[in-house]
Structures are given as C-alpha cells and as structure tokens.
Design a protein around this nucleic acid. Structure first.
Lengths: 131, 131
DNA sequence: ATACGACTTAAACCATGGTTTAAGTCAACA
DNA sequence: TGTTGACTTAAACCATGGTTTAAGTCGTAT
C-alpha cells in the first residue's frame, strides 16, 4: 500500500500542513498511522477521509459535528443509521444555504443593472451637453 | 416620513440590536439620524441600506469591503463605476461559491445513497438469517 | 415624584477556525 | 561525523464577527 507524507496530503487538497495537524488534534482525523520516526502516514483511505472532512468543512459543518461524524465512521456499521441521518440533515442545510445565496445573488444582479443604467444615463447626459 | 427605532429595525431583519450597533460602530451604517435623546432613527432609506449590508454579509463579503461600499454610496454618483465593479466582482464570487457548494452537495448525496444501500443490505441479511 | 422600559456608551468578553513560533528529533547524504 | 531538510510537539498568537456587561440617560404612564 502506498503512503503519503503530510506535505503530500496537504498538496493534494491545497491546504497548509498546519491545518491537517490542527484537524488531527481536534479529533477530525482518527487512526492516522505513523512511521518509526513518528511522522504521519496517509493511506488512500486516510486521504479520502481527509477529503470528506474538507467537504463538510467547506459546506459549513462545525468542527464539533465533523468530529462526531468521524467518530461514528471509526465505530463501524452500528452507526450507519446515525451517519445517514446526519448526512440527510446536512444535505438539507446545504440546500437551504444554496437557495439563500441564490436569492441574494439576484439582489446583487439588480444592483448591477441599476448601476449600469445610471451610468449610461449620466454618459448620455454629458454627450448631449457637450454638443 | 416614518422613522423606526433600533428595536423595530432589528425586528425587520430578525437580528439583535447589538449587531446593528456593532455595524454602525464599524462604519457600515453611515448617516443614521438621532432624536433629541440620542436614539437612532431609521428612515426607509436607512432600512434599505441595512438590508444591503445584511445581503453582502450573508454572501460572505468581509466587513472591511462592505464598509468601503457604504462609503462610496455616501460619496455619491462619482463612485458609481467603482460600486458597479465591486458588485460585478462580488456577483462572480457568490456565483463561484454556489457552484462549489453544489458540487459538494452531490458528494453528500452520494454518501447518502451509499449509506442507504448498505443499511438495506444489512437488513436483508438479517431477514434471511432469521428464517 | 417616581418607576419603568427603551434606549445610550465604552469596554470587556466570547467562539470559531485556524497560523505561527520555538525547540527539538530523525534519516540520509557529503 | 556533521549538516540539511522534513518532520515533530505544545503553546502562544491571530482575525473575524459579533455578544455581553455595567453604568447611565431619557420620556412617559401612574
């Protein structure tokens, strides 16, 4: 099996090494192996789990919940229902956030239209006055 | 003209009064009038500006930028182009964020599918064993 | 007159999510 | 053998975005 160092894992996801260490300390990355020198070894599986952490973090799940989720993964099949329920709730939360952002987006687009028109009007006015 | 108190303004947007005071202190709400007793008076116009601040904040514009934007509004028509450009950039940023969230959303949906299947398989297995 | 509720301020405090620093260990190469 | 580079730790530090506290001022209803 191929293992990656922390610098390689960091490069894969484009995040600083310090963030990975921070996540491990917070309990978001259980089961990371070490070599004889104490350096972290990331298996493919560990890399995938780190990807899951990053996905949840980027969709605004708080660290405390991500931690709970990762603990359930380690616990095994007995937590499948709980994980399913958590992901269903999270899907809803992400969906709601996307809807809200989309609404705000159209507010922003209205502003852009207004500004564009106002600027055009001012330009037209200047054109007329300069004749 | 009708004016609202800070508590009414807070109720309109469902935010704490303390947040409005904080925004004003940070320079996000210039030009708020006061009554003889020093209490804030929100005109319709001020309420609309507060709404704009909340829109920008909820789409993750940092307070320092929102402040810049509000200062440009106060400055008047000479800043129309700058405001337009800022809103165009922000539209792009919001759009990008929505895209990213949408991608992560399908990752979450995949997890939900996997969990659902696994749970079904385990249930089927139990059913068979119990006969 | 006084008590109440709504408001005021400045300053301290808080939570979240990291980042930086300092001091040290290890493996490999010159 | 010694120096270099990648890694380790714990603890301090930071930025962002508020929230809370303490002490005080008004205007109105009783």
């Amino acid at each position: 099996m191929k293992y990656s160092s922390i610098s390689e894992a960091a490069a894969v996801y484009g995040i600083p090494e310090s963030t990975i260490r921070y996540y491990e300390k917070k309990g978001l990355l259980p089961l990371i192996e070490r070599d004889q020198a104490g350096r972290r070894l990331f298996s493919e599986r560990q890399l995938a789990l780190l990807g899951a952490v990053i996905c949840l973090k980027n969709t605004h799940m708080p660290i405390s919940k991500i931690k709970q989720y990762m603990e359930w993964i380690v616990e095994g099949d007995s937590t499948l229902e709980r994980r399913l329920e958590m992901m269903q709730r999270h899907r809803q939360a992400v969906h709601d956030e996307i809807s809200l952002m989309t609404q705000y987006l159209s507010g922003i687009e209205e502003k852009i239209e207004r500004y564009t028109k106002q600027i055009q009007e001012i330009k037209n006015g200047e054109e007329v006055r300069s004749r």
